[in-house]
Amino acid sequence: MKLELRFFASLREALGISQEVIEVPEAVKTISDLRLHLIGRGNSWAEVLADGKVLRCALNQRMVDPNALLKEGAEVAFFPPVTGG
């Protein structure tokens, strides 16, 4: 499955990347599967996305919980809790 990833704020800075297109294996079905898959890259990925880190995810530009199912071609964003206003 092909996904477009987006990263914002402190995550973007720590990972040194704001977006990328990736192909994930069939076993990656949910947001939390994807998080684990990215942690598997090691280094800053393992650190920034580690289990204890509080972060938020959006699927096709809507905030979702970690159980949300991924879809072919989806835009998936990871970011820290928001601090606007």
Binding site: A9, A58, M63, A77, F79, V82, T83, G84, G85
Partner: peptide
């Protein structure tokens, strides 16, 4: 709601 649901970040 804006404070917790709108994707803005301050540095």
């Amino acid at each position: 709601y804006l404070k917790t649901a709108a994707p803005f970040w301050k540095k």
